[in-house]
Amino acid sequence: MNISADRASGVFFLLFGLAMYFAVNPNYIEAVESGNIAPRTLPDTVSIIIAICGAVLVIKPTDQRVRNPVLMAKTGFYIVLLSVGIYAMSWFGFEYVAPLLAFAIMWFIGERRPFWLGLGVVGMPLLIWYLVTQLLGRALP
């Protein structure tokens, strides 16, 4: 999976740049008649350059190798875990979700030592709570 990594990203950026120029920018940027530079000028120019560079990359790729797909899948798992954590925080608050999130991360890494688990699951969230709410007088998310 060496040359195809650049070709894959090149195709993506070619399509992304064209989609931005023809579909997204016209629909999500307001047209303004006055002024020296229209709101669409910079995004349009940048989109076109991205598309051109994507095409160049397809034609002339480097020997870039993509990361191991298994590792990327594991990363996807942690992204889902963090997304669930943020969503849960919006419902229950940082105080309740942070220890569980810290425990889940440490557990999946493979941490089983009670001292480090205690420090990460209880100690660190407690320290953050004390620093933010007691010392700084700010609210936790």
Binding site: L82, A102, I105, G110, E111
Partner: peptide, 10 residues
């Protein structure tokens, strides 16, 4: 890493 990364994330 377990404590560094979980703490850094929080």
């Amino acid at each position: 890493e377990s404590i560094i990364f979980s703490s850094a994330l929080l």
